[in-house]
Design a protein around this nucleic acid. Structure first.
Length: 127
DNA sequence: CGAGTGACCCTCA
DNA sequence: TTGAGGGCCACTC
């Protein structure tokens, strides 16, 4: 059952991000159960309302927005106590870790410890 | 039903 | 560190 739409699930993950913390599209997508669906996270933020969209940043903690939206997001985050490091956010201090997300904890290299799911379709036509 | 788009991510050089 | 390329997935026209 649980015919939950992907957006609802993503929205739920976004709502789990507490104030003063931030997350990335990829992290939200993974926490929602859709690894690689980072783009859908962005669309969900656009379609859904009432979500802390300003707490969602791009990879590396950089704001991928443009124009006034980017400025607003930055202001909102700073207002919540998020520190910015130049144009990027200091994820090291505010990157939220999802409770359900079991990413095998990155050791130290920060890389994913092997593809839990053999993405066979990840073939590269070498050109 | 097909093609294009998008508040993106990851990997390699 | 920065830059470029390829891939993923849902929604819209």
């Amino acid at each position: 059952m649980t015919e939950i739409s992907m957006r609802d699930r993503i929205a739920a993950a976004i709502r789990k991000v507490p104030r003063g913390h931030v997350s990335t599209y990829g992290a939200i997508a993974r926490a929602a159960g859709y690894p690689g669906a980072a783009r859908q996270v962005a669309q969900t933020l656009h379609s859904s309302v009432g979500l802390p969209w300003h707490r969602i940043l791009g990879a590396g903690g950089e704001i991928k927005l443009r124009g006034d939206s980017a400025m607003e997001q930055r202001l909102r985050l700073e207002f919540e106590g998020v520190k910015f490091r130049g144009r990027k956010v200091n994820m090291r201090l505010h990157e939220f870790n999802f409770p359900r997300a079991r990413k095998t904890e990155t050791s130290k290299t920060g890389r994913r410890s092997g593809p839990a799911k053999p993405r066979a379709a990840r073939r590269k036509p070498r050109r």
